[in-house]
Design a protein around this nucleic acid. Structure first.
Lengths: 231, 231
DNA sequence: TTAAGTTAGTGTCGAATTTACACTAATGCA
DNA sequence: TGCATTAGTGTAAATTCGACACTAACTTAA
């Protein structure tokens, strides 16, 4: 992350001051039946030592989506399969260095796709339960709250939650994802009826043996990587 | 609207180039049973003479929402009661002058609140039916498409459409708004049942006499200016 | 003054959807 | 071999949704 205002080199000039533009990513995953999100410990001022969303400054010829993906990869090594823009956050003063407009993203990834490592100017990268977040830098608590609301809001009229599962999964796994997200138990038979009525999943024909119980049928999305909106 | 890259004056400098940030507003209203939106005819390059969303550059100490409201007021004289952020549009090349990130807004206003006049660098301001839009500058067709989808998407789980009506209204007027938005006829008795089950409107006790027919009860929102989300 | 035209306002019944609910099946482990 | 664990399945009641037709109150014109 650069700190332009502190640097004397002056390569680009405008008649009117332009704000800096950054992207920040709220990456959710589900780990041990808990909805978690990825934060980095800031290695630089401001807010050095406190936790923040992965993100950083937009390159001048870079698409916003690409910036979000790049910064996430640089700082955490993660390339999530789902990335959706949340909106722009630009309250004056949200960054003490200079005026910064941040375009926030919501990202989802299955636990299996994650090999997190701290990179660049992040001192550390770590997962936190949404129920036990540390003190956050900037207005990132607000961004996270919006991301969480957006995720929950899309649950029952889209297949967005499938992005939290790997390519193949069992109906039990799918149900546990939904139960974690809505933080409540769901009736098994009704859930399975609902999931199959979507016509978005198909059995692979395989069985998955996990644990000392009957093996489960394995499913995949019929339309891989597509979020379907319905109702 | 300034054109910084064409100007030799150089007052602000950064180590890395910052993009310009603008806001653009998609203001909908309903006029004569047609969903219309406000466009301005551009008086300056680029896209001089073609139509665009009202909007303009963010002041360096200005909140995004305030910028949207200010630019709308400056260019069209309108102060809509509802303004919601849609998202950021920032594809490189969307503005031929320089890199511009536009934060788009969705605004709604009742027809009664509108006294449009062209201002500033807009040659003209005019309403267009969403069904017959002119050729649009920049990526504004894309922004409008998103705004329209967002509005329709929120219809049946929020009271957003009430923002298209003045403070008091009859159930017949409310129904016509919904019929215009979904572009279909709605059963009168079912609609009225639904509207009253929301518990968001209350009768004022007055009657409204309009035309050669029985007068209608007048209603208002119980929670004025609040968009309620349900389901 | 009366008839015609127009929108306001109201309830029921069948269809479709949603919810509650309990047992058998197949595996691993002790 | 029995116990614990998760997989997998259907039905009936309750609720919601959707179709549908008439009377009420006013204005205007004959």
């Amino acid at each position: 992350m650069a700190d332009p205002s502190a640097n004397a080199a002056q390569s680009y000039c405008y008649q009117y001051p332009h704000p800096a533009v950054t992207t920040d990513v709220v990456l959710f995953t589900i780990h041990e039946d808990s909805l978690q999100l990825l934060l980095i410990e800031r290695g630089n001022k401001p807010f050095k030592g406190s936790w923040a969303l992965p993100g950083g400054f937009l390159n001048i010829d870079e698409d916003l989506d690409a910036c979000a993906a790049r910064e996430l990869a640089e700082e955490t090594g993660v390339a999530p399969p789902y990335l959706e823009q949340l909106g722009a956050f630009g309250k004056p003063g949200r960054d003490p260095r200079e005026r910064v407009i941040s375009v926030a993203y919501l990202a989802l990834a299955p636990e299996t796709a994650l090999a997190v490592r701290a990179g660049d100017d992040a001192a550390a990268a770590a997962w936190f339960s949404v129920k036990a977040l540390p003190a956050l830098a900037f207005d990132h608590a607000e961004i996270i709250a919006l991301a969480h609301r957006r995720l929950i809001g899309k649950l029952d009229n889209s297949t967005i939650a499938f992005q939290l599962l790997p390519e193949t999964f069992t109906l039990g796994e799918l149900q546990r994802v939904y139960e974690t997200l809505v933080d409540a138990e769901i009736d098994k038979r009704n859930f399975r009826k609902w999931a199959q009525a979507l016509e978005q999943i198909e059995a692979t024909g395989e069985l998955r043996r996990r644990g000392n119980h009957r093996p489960a049928r394995v499913y995949r999305l019929t339309d891989r990587d597509r979020i379907t909106r319905f109702k």
